[in-house]
Design a protein around this nucleic acid. Structure first.
Length: 487
RNA sequence: GGCCCUUUCGUCUAAUGGUUAGGACAGCGCCCUUUCACGGCGUAAAUACGGGUUCGAUUCCCGUAGGGGUCACCA
């Protein structure tokens, strides 16, 4: 909560999704910022499920949300699965609480039973639309109303129609006119509260200090503020995030633009920390020129001060770059562990030589999926194979020399390599032993055929790395085999 | 249509009255190099427009235009 000077005493933020399907990037980023802010200030982060619209609820969503957040490493201190001092954390289980505040508002004269049918209200709305006016229920506010019996919607009666001005931690001073104020529904005829009502009660009861929220709530803030007034509750601080736009920048990112389930990124081989890094930079920066940051660094650098006001376009190209950077920074053993887990999970056959080619894979793949596919395609099969039988054509393709000359070179290379002891057969030693000869004789005539002899492929890592990878014995055998092919 | 928000390279952004307007992704070029990849260097590229305020505006104010949001018994 905040004291009168606005000093942060204890930060409490929350992420409050509704279980209506999968998690998309917009929701995840809002959750991420709320979480980073709480962590930065040693505060509390709450996960709350807003399931007050039973018609739209999609089964399994809660589990899916939890799985998504956990994959990203966003952990909550209080939530539906772990409980906490303000349990329950699922709104449909908090109905008593909303009724309590509803009664309070009725007593104070700030709530009344809505006498109209849905059709009648719809007609008012249509009329406003026809007249190109904003729809305001309060234009039709009834003079007398019956006592609320729970079968009709309970409406909020706006205490004062006025212009509201408030401060937003990201946007600064915001304001909205009287048109933004209306008698909105507190409790629906099915007994569930609306978002407008429920989130305010919950945030209050859960001690939320900062509401990190999406752009679309700016327009309804005056409604919230008037409800806070009626309830005589001090509102939390607001921090409004910029929208995430589709690649064309024309509208908010939608499924059509490829907005997908956040867990799809796991399938596509993205590292959660890379995705988090990318998402954090969509509308935020650390205030310096660093870009590739770990979660710990992100937490440390995070502040609302550097959040953008304008919308950002989702750019998958840059996400791929972030992922590659994070992949490259992984120690080989960690990379291998990640890749192996990925391949097992998504049905790839794992190879025993993955650990040996970790550094090659990291360098060449932007995602774990690309690495897995490269392995499956046999791009590194030369690690396992005993014999390689390249064609003479390939052996000579870029050698810029005739078969007899190449054959002589390979023979000489063998003679140099055989002198190296088995345990000293590293890429550097191999290079040192033959590089002088190769330079002298023309590198393309020596190194190209050697590399093809070892890999059997037109494209591959260099022959020194290859030699070390497959070992002295196979290296010599393959070079000998290549000499047989040449005539 | 009303109300609200927003506007720096193609994209993500830095610079909160004085900079040759900086970085990154993507692009292009060169270098490294036996191929591929990695890497290095370099290049092109922006303050939406029009008015103010000021000695001086990317920065402050107003207007215009573009974009976004909202006007539910959805959140």
């Amino acid at each position: 909560m905040n004291d009168r000077n606005g000093t942060i005493n204890h930060v409490v933020t929350r992420f409050a999704p509704s279980p209506t399907g999968f998690m998309h990037v917009g929701g995840v980023r809002t959750a991420l910022f709320a979480w980073l802010f709480a962590r930065k200030h040693g505060g509390t982060f709450i996960l709350r499920i807003e399931d007050t619209d039973k018609a739209r609820e999609v089964g399994g969503s809660i589990e899916h949300i939890i799985e998504s957040l956990k994959w990203l490493g966003i952990e909550w201190d209080e939530g539906p699965d772990i409980g906490g001092p303000h349990a329950p954390y699922i709104q449909s289980e908090r109905l008593d609480s909303y009724r309590k505040y509803a009664r309070l508002l009725i007593e104070k004269g700030f709530a009344y039973s809505d006498p109209y049918t849905e059709e009648e209200v719809e007609a008012f709305r249509k009329q406003a639309e026809t007249e190109k006016r904003a729809f305001l229920y309060r234009d039709h506010r009834p003079n007398v109303t019956e006592a609320w019996d729970g079968t009709k919607p309970l409406r909020f009666k706006v205490p004062a129609i006025k212009r509201y001005v408030w401060n937003d931690l990201v946007r600064g001073e915001l304001s909205a006119g009287e048109e933004a104020l209306d008698d909105f529904i507190l409790i629906k005829s099915d007994g569930y509260p609306t978002y407008n009502f429920a989130h305010i009660i919950d945030d209050h009861e859960m001690g939320v200090s900062h509401i990190v929220r999406a752009d679309e709530f700016i327009a309804s803030t005056p409604k919230f503020l008037s409800l806070y007034d009626a309830l005589e509750i001090t509102p939390p601080l607001f921090a409004t995030m910029p929208p995430i736009l589709g690649p064309d920048g024309k509208h908010k990112l939608s499924k059509r633009d490829g907005a997908k389930d956040i867990l799809d990124y796991r399938k596509e081989g993205y590292l959660p920390e890379a995705l988090v890094n990318f998402l954090a930079f969509l509308g935020w920066n650390p205030g310096d020129e660093r870009e590739v940051l770990s979660i710990a660094e992100l937490t440390d650098a995070f502040s609302f001060d550097h959040i953008q006001k304008a919308g950002a376009k989702f750019n998958e190209e840059k996400l791929r770059w972030f992922n590659h950077e994070h992949l490259k920074r992984l120690p080989d053993t960690d990379f291998t562990a990640h890749l192996t887990a990925f391949m097992v999970e998504f049905g790839f056959d794992t190879s025993t030589y993955l650990g040996k080619i970790a550094s090659l894979l990291k360098e060449r793949s932007q995602t774990l999926l690309e690495a897995a596919e490269a392995v499956r395609a046999g791009d590194f099969s030369f690690c396992e194979e005993i014999i390689i039988v390249p064609s003479q054509e390939l052996l000579l393709k870029s050698a810029k020399a005739d078969a007899a000359t190449v054959k002589t070179h390979l023979k000489h290379v063998s003679e140099l390599l055989v002198k190296i002891s088995d345990d000293a057969f590293t890429a550097d030693v191999v290079k040192d032993s033959i590089f002088g000869y190769a330079t002298e004789q023309g590198r393309s005539a020596v190194l190209w055929p050697m590399r093809v002899a070892l890999s059997g492929k037109e494209k591959s890592p260099d022959p020194f790395i290859l030699s070390a990878l497959i070992g002295k014995e196979k290296t010599l055998a393959r070079i000998a085999a290549a000499q047989e092919i040449l005539r």
